[in-house]
Nucleic acid binder design. Sequence first.
DNA 1: CGTTTTTGACCGGCGC
DNA 2: GCGCCGGTCAAAAACG
Length: 231
Amino acid sequence: MSTTSQAILSQGGLFEDQDQAPAQMDFFSFAPNLTLPTFGCHQSLKAFSTIPPSLASDSPSSNLSGTLISSATTRDDITSDFIGSQLLSLHRSSANLWAWGDMGDCLASKRDIGGDLDGHHLGVSTLKMKKIKARRKVREPRFCFKTMSDVDVLDDGYKWRKYGQKVVKNTQHPRSYYRCTQDNCRVKKRVERLAEDPRMVITTYEGRHVHSPSHDMEESQAPSQLNNFFW
DNA sequence: CGTTTTTGACCGGCGC
DNA sequence: GCGCCGGTCAAAAACG
């Protein structure tokens, strides 16, 4: 992955589930108020963690939300300039929205308040709301983002092992399933190229890492938890 | 030879 | 209950 051209780049957005990722980039402002946990998975997302610790803390009650535009595929690409210029629309959220069900409730109540009947701009149909409710069980926190990239699997500093691949209906690109290789870490991610626009890759993370990125161990010797707050 | 990928089988949830 | 579909398993192959 650290091959020749890293100069890929990417525009991305964050959504709490892949179903909600808009097909077109114009919809980017689509979910400015949705919250997302500070997973610290993908470098783009990690950019969130470079915001003041008060915002990036692990506390579920201080989740971040926003829309992200990034232009890097490697951690080295992330500079403070990058963060300043590429990270957009960051908000603090007071709600605890880790669980899926809660996420659904949040969306639902927002819609009620706003009286937004068509709900189209939110990209969540009433049908889907039901679906979310039905899945209320216990779901790992999950989110996805979309990037424009010619590499499928972006280097996010973690080590992944592929455990499956599937062609899903109505798509011509297979979806790949990965699991974090770290023992006891059950984080999964799936990667899929958009049918509408093959330049776009949708990456969905599920769960939270119980460790820091493995890369850091090898190269620059073990980072302190403080440094780790950056990556 | 240990680790990762590939790929068909299998399984569970859901709609009909 | 049955079939479809997405997600996972696991044996075999590929890789380094």
